Amino acid sequence: MTTATQPAPRDDTALLSAHGLTLGFDGRTVVPSLDVAFARGTVTSVIGPNGCGKSTLLRGLGRLLRPQAGRVALDGGDLAGMSSRATAQRMSILPQTPHAPSGLTVGELVARGRHPRQRWYQQFSHSDEGAIADALAATDIADLAATPLEDLSGGQRQRAWISMILAQETELMLLDEPTTYLDLAHQVDVLELVRRLNQDMGRTVVMVLHDISLAARYSDVIIAMRDGRIVAEGPPSDVITPELLWEVFGLRAEVIQEPTEGRPHVVPLGAGSVKSAAAPGMRAGLQVMSEADA
Rank of each mutant, 00 (worst) to 15 (best):
T2I: 15
T2R: 14
T2Q: 15
T5F: 07
P7N: 14
A8V: 01
A8W: 00
A8I: 01
R10S: 15
A14T: 03
L16S: 03
S17K: 00
L21N: 05
D26V: 02
G27E: 11
T29Y: 02
V30L: 06
S33F: 00
V36I: 15
A37T: 04
F38M: 04
F38C: 03
G41V: 03
T42E: 07
T44K: 09
T44M: 13
I47S: 01
I47T: 05
N50A: 11
N50I: 13
G53W: 04
L57H: 02
L58S: 02
G60P: 12
L61P: 00
R63W: 11
R63V: 14
R66P: 07
R66K: 14
P67I: 04
Q68D: 05
R71K: 14
V72Y: 05
A73D: 13
L74V: 08
D75T: 02
D78N: 09
L79T: 00
A80H: 10
Q89N: 06
Q89I: 01
Q89C: 04
L94N: 00
T97Y: 09
H99V: 14
V106M: 06
E108R: 12
V110L: 06
H115G: 00
H115F: 05
P116V: 11
R119D: 12
W120I: 11
Y121A: 08
Y121N: 06
S125Q: 10
H126E: 14
A133W: 03
A135W: 01
I141L: 07
I141T: 01
A142P: 01
L149A: 11
S153L: 09
R159C: 07
A160F: 01
I165D: 00
E169C: 12
L174T: 12
L175R: 01
E177Q: 10
T179I: 08
T179W: 01
L182K: 02
V188P: 06
L191D: 05
V194G: 00
M201K: 15
M201N: 15
M201P: 07
G202L: 13
L209K: 01
R217K: 14
R217G: 05
S219T: 11
A224Y: 00
I230W: 04
V231E: 07
P235W: 09
D238S: 09
I240T: 05
T241Q: 10
P242Q: 05
L245K: 04
V248I: 06
L251I: 06
I256H: 11
Q257I: 05
G262T: 09
V267R: 07
L269T: 04
G270E: 13
G272R: 02
P280M: 09
P280Y: 13
M282A: 12
G285N: 05
A294G: 06
